[in-house]
Design a protein around this nucleic acid. Structure first.
Lengths: 209, 209
DNA sequence: CCCGTTTGCAAACGTATGTTTCAAACATCT
DNA sequence: AGATGTTTGAAACATACGTTTGCAAACGGG
């Protein structure tokens, strides 16, 4: 089929539109007309708007969880001690590689993650933490021995500070980039910001009160 | 009058409801019934829902901007060099003191700030940056010489990483605190988290690529 | 006390939304 | 080819929303 499947076209449109306008601000009519699909198709294929939102997240997070699991398996197979920076790079590579190093789409999806946190969307938080709780817990378990000098409370808050820095800056990447004078190099700007972010996080996470 | 003024009751209800559910997800009917006020009162006193949202932000940010300006005046009057940590403490004290050290309300309002960033709400971003651009620019101007070893690009990204860490963690403070085992000391937990946050930011901002 | 203005209230209006319906088009299998 | 199950399409439905209206009550200066 020359045209992509209806389901995928809906998911593509929904992912992009949600990211730039939020969930409640994006109507099914906008989504379906962007996707060149009949309005009823969303309820037919997904059942409801809520379910569509969940499907958008699952389509992105499933490969990410797989990629992360795989890399953690590899790392543990080598049985070497993983440093904090090793783990940060591992995570960022897992995220980026999960969708063919499409940095734009990844940054756009980070915006969705930010929305999922701030916007109440209770059903989403419950669903995601139920579905991906195991992977994130495993990552944290590996992170724990990489920061032996930190107490559990230190680590807890520092990781959430780091998560905030990542989600916030990447989800607002578009707006932030526009504020910069364009004298900086053109190529792979996002990559550079990610390098900056990792350095920032690496320094912060090591702090204990 | 025993009852607070209608305008204030609306603002109180709107601030709390917006913070916990988002802008689009909070209807005027929910706001007015929470405030025990007639539905039409919002459009009468504020003109529109958009204007109400702006008014909520102005009521909170105006004292904050004043407090920050005052403290910057004092600091510059002493003509001492302000270190990065001095400036972080100055800012956090300005934020907290602006509303009688009501940490709960401050944390709740941080959530609103996060929403203002993530949800498109273009009118809000424009309005706020037009109204408070001068104060924030002044703070950044003082911050600049406190980090002499950083390039402008370094400083730009690091401050936004820091902002993300702050907004995200404080705006989700309620949910995060609930995840912690309650063995930690009861008193002034928020204050402790703010101390942690400042240490985290202080370490991260100093990083250059 | 009166009258112009402000505030409060109930009801309605117009619109946009998520969802449902049901018949037509399509695909798949025997 | 014909029957059967799946997918699309246009239209309608029910509801929730922001906003407006019309009028009564309260207020305040002359």
């Amino acid at each position: 089929m020359a045209q992509k499947d209806t389901v995928d076209r809906i998911l593509d449109a929904a992912e992009a539109l949600f990211a730039e306008r939020g969930f409640a601000e994006t109507s099914l009519r906008t989504i379906t007309s962007t996707a060149n699909v009949n309005l009823a198709a969303v309820n037919y294929h997904f059942g409801s708007k809520k379910a569509l939102i969940q499907a958008v997240f699952v389509r992105f997070l499933e490969p990410l969880a797989d990629s992360l699991t795989l890399r953690l398996d590899d790392a543990e197979a080598e049985a070497k001690e993983l440093s904090l920076d090793d783990l940060l790079v591992l995570l960022s590579k897992a995220i980026l590689s999960a969708h063919g190093d499409d940095v734009t789409r990844t940054a756009s999806f980070m915006r969705l993650l930010g929305l999922a946190y701030t916007q109440s969307q209770g059903h989403l938080r419950d669903y995601l933490s139920e579905r991906y709780g195991r992977v994130s817990k495993r990552y944290l378990d590996v992170l724990r021995p990489a920061c032996p000098e930190l107490s559990d409370t230190d680590l807890f808050w520092n990781t959430h500070f780091a998560l905030g820095a990542a989600v916030f800056s990447l989800s607002n990447y578009g707006a932030l980039e526009a504020m910069l004078s364009d004298d900086s190099g053109e190529e792979s700007k996002v990559q550079n910001v990610i390098r900056r972010l990792l350095a920032f996080i690496s320094a912060g996470v090591k702090i204990s009160l």
